[in-house]
């Protein structure tokens, strides 16, 4: 045990003096995490989506057009640009500055009310793959709602006309409109939602990237350990140590313990920095976190041990295959973390 700790202490001292290795183990992952997280924040929905939508309203007094504008204004992901001409909107959509522009035609509300043919127009940028489909979906939802109101009004008018054609249609429309609105608000069919579990935190790019990168660089750290071990074999240090009165397990155990502790330390530092600086959510149980970190470190150390058992020398061809594979496995973590 004394020898085992002696080897572990020596490994830590050597690592402490190797500034390049320290940078690779700690600084590079942090820098990479920050760059990748900010770069991919759009993909992961890290920031709130804020779509600017120009609206050209030629039906300024119309009740229904006012209502459409009100719905869009209250939407959390849409900011309306109302003081804009049709030409200006068309130019900016064409330049890709806006994903789409909504055009409400003249007498839109009146035509809807009396069942005449009319349409909303959406001028869009075909290259907008995320924002335009989102806007289109929102507007189609509004149209569906208007159509249901329209159906109710038209049905009411037909039925009233059958009984008394002398009645005021405008009054009827107004009343029907109110009834439809009230039904929708109070007595209509509703969907009640039940939570199946407590709400989890919204995934952000740091939550996606930090664990993946931490694992990737942990594997790279173990890879460095394997290379150092091979170097010791090649430079005769191994031979010298094995000619000393120690058990082989002290030498191997000391190496593995140092790899394991370095991996845990590396994970702990990366997660702590990510937690305090980037508000990374680490779960509710510190014990569970310690268990996960320890298990990952143990698994990485075990893979490292397995590889170092097969590898004879840094120079042999098959050694490079093992090391390359290990590097590939490490890099896969990056891909899994970033793209899955």
């Amino acid at each position: 045990m004394k020898h085992l700790l002696l080897f572990t202490t020596k490994e830590f001292l050597i690592l402490w003096r190797d500034k390049g290795a320290l940078v690779m183990l700690l600084l590079v992952p942090i820098v990479l995490i920050v760059i990748a997280s900010f770069a991919l924040s759009g993909v992961f929905g890290g920031g709130k989506m804020d779509i600017k939508l120009p609206v050209i309203n030629y039906d300024k007094e119309g009740e229904i057009s006012q209502e459409i504008i009100a719905i869009l204004e209250n939407h959390p992901n849409i900011t309306l640009e109302k003081d804009i001409s049709k030409d200006e909107a068309q130019a900016k959509v064409g330049e890709g500055k806006y994903p789409a522009a909504l055009i409400i035609p003249e007498n839109f509300s009146q035509k809807i009310t009396f069942g005449e043919k009319t349409e909303l127009k959406l001028l869009y940028d075909p290259n907008s793959n995320v924002e335009y489909p989102f806007v289109k979906g929102v507007i189609e939802g509004i149209i569906e709602k208007i159509n249901s109101i329209r159906l109710a009004i038209q049905t009411a008018l037909i039925e009233v006309n059958k009984v008394n054609s002398q009645l005021d249609p405008e009054k009827i429309v107004k009343e029907a409109h109110e009834i439809t609105q009230n039904l929708a608000a109070e007595g209509g069919l509703k969907l009640t939602l039940f939570k199946a579990r407590e709400e989890t935190r919204e995934a952000d790019p740091f939550a996606q990237n930090v664990p993946g990168y931490a694992i990737m660089f942990m594997l790279f750290g173990i890879l460095g350990g394997i290379e150092a071990l091979l170097e010791e074999k090649e430079t005769g240090i191994f031979k010298r140590i094995l000619s000393l009165p120690i058990k082989k397990y002290s030498l191997l155990g000391g190496k593995l313990l140092s790899w394991f502790l370095i991996a845990i330390l590396q994970m702990a530092i990366i997660l702590t920095i990510a937690h305090f600086i980037f508000d990374l959510y680490l779960g509710k149980s510190i014990l569970a976190l310690i268990l996960v970190v320890s298990t990952c470190s143990f698994a990485s150390t075990s893979i490292g041990t397995l590889i170092s058992a097969f590898v004879k020398s840094k120079k042999t061809g098959h050694t490079n295959v093992y090391i390359d594979y290990f590097g590939y496995v490490s890099f896969r973590w990056f891909l899994v973390a970033s793209l899955d």
Partner: peptide, 18 residues
């Protein structure tokens, strides 16, 4: 045997950072 022998290997069997 290991307690009573000394070895000076052909390679420079030393740690550069110690």
């Amino acid at each position: 045997v290991k307690k009573i022998i000394g070895l000076v290997p052909q390679e420079i069997a030393l740690y550069p950072n110690l």
